[in-house]
Design a protein around this nucleic acid. Structure first.
Lengths: 206, 206
DNA sequence: ATTATCTATAGATCTATAGATAATGC
DNA sequence: ATTATCTATAGATCTATAGATAATGC
């Protein structure tokens, strides 16, 4: 009984000496989601064909459809995966974690590229990621406002309220990602983000 | 001899009482570019089919190919058009013009959407807009650094150099556009941008 | 002669369905 | 019985080429 290539310690379940078939199916689905992330980074969602994703994971296009019966079903799985990554519970975001997150992101251009490409597509009409991103930003702005409030109270040193600073914080993170993805040599993403955090923390002298 | 629908005062040329054929051709091309901008806003570049653009302007797909022999040729014309819009000579950007630009943009979501969608696609591999945006951002960062220098000299009140503030300025503009396009009710784009400009102009109290 | 447009169509893709075949696991 | 995977293929699109037809302008 041949084991799957990756090893499977994390998904071990007590059914004899091999994975249960359910666990094996789940692992295959996870492999497919990873392949989809890669292909979407390279070609966007509209440009990512099911055949290309299937090939990446060593299946035919029809084999892939066995695991995800439609392209949208696969996209949903991709977005769910995304939600789990930065799944720090909303109430536990501290401002000083953000700098580390940006630094971490600077080490994984592939993932950043996947979601920057999806965000770009999401503004077009009827795109399947539109609702996802709209709701996500409502949530993220609220979370960031809370983190700012925890750090500074009702007014930042600059005089802004947490609610008004939050969209700026989010905008800087997203905007820097595009500049950095297009030209990583010219843009020091983590450094620029630290500059911005310092700016937020400075007192209003006027 | 029937005139074209729009009237043509601006393109008048001295060849009798009608447009020259060259001027008429140019006007048709301009119409097509406008249609392309619309369809790209709705569906992105990859999603914008030549047939859909042709239909928007009242041509068959093959009729459209008479004016732009390939889809990429049409994209190039779209990007050139973009370059002409905010064609304030680089050296004449003043910081206080930026707030007005953002306010103006808030009144034309279609255009903003076209270029936000293209920017998103541009990070995918081998996309025809990639080089355009990469070069454009190098230029825009330099222009913004100059505008900041003209306003504040070698150090902003916050202590940042113009070169380090410039990418933040650009990032905020782009990032706010995505949040605003996805949820215009929740995001006051011009207001948030003014907040950011104020932040840049505040003195460092530390 | 040039320009504007059309019909017809080649040749790639793309998503998705239908249904066969083999292996796995109660 | 369920799961994994394949071949075959329908039915849409998509870009682009070829070549016809009509109108326009020197």
């Amino acid at each position: 009984m041949s084991l799957h290539k990756g090893g499977c310690g994390l998904l071990w379940v007590p059914y004899g000496d091999a994975m249960s078939s359910r666990a094996r199916t789940e692992e295959r689905r996870a492999e497919i989601v990873r392949a989809a992330l890669e292909v979407i980074a390279e070609r966007g969602y509209r440009g990512a064909s099911m055949a290309a994703i299937a090939e990446r994971v060593g299946l035919t296009q029809q084999g892939l459809l066995h695991y995800f019966p439609t392209k949208d079903a696969l996209l949903v799985a991709v977005l769910k995966e995304r939600d789990q990554w930065d799944a720090v519970p909303d109430s536990q975001w501290r401002l000083d974690l953000l700098g580390s997150l940006v630094e971490y992101n600077a080490m994984r251009p592939g993932i950043v590229q996947t979601f920057s490409a999806l965000l770009g597509e999401s503004v077009t009409e009827g795109h399947p990621t539109r609702e996802f991103f709209t709701e996500r930003y409502v949530r993220v702005r609220a979370t960031m406002a809370e983190a700012l409030r925890a750090a500074y109270g009702e007014r930042l040193p600059s005089g802004l309220s947490p609610e008004r600073a939050a969209p700026l914080l989010v905008a800087v993170m997203d905007g820097l990602q595009y500049q950095w993805l297009l030209d990583p040599e010219s843009v020091d993403m983590p450094g620029a983000f630290r500059d911005f955090l310092a700016l937020l923390g400075e007192a209003d002298a006027s």
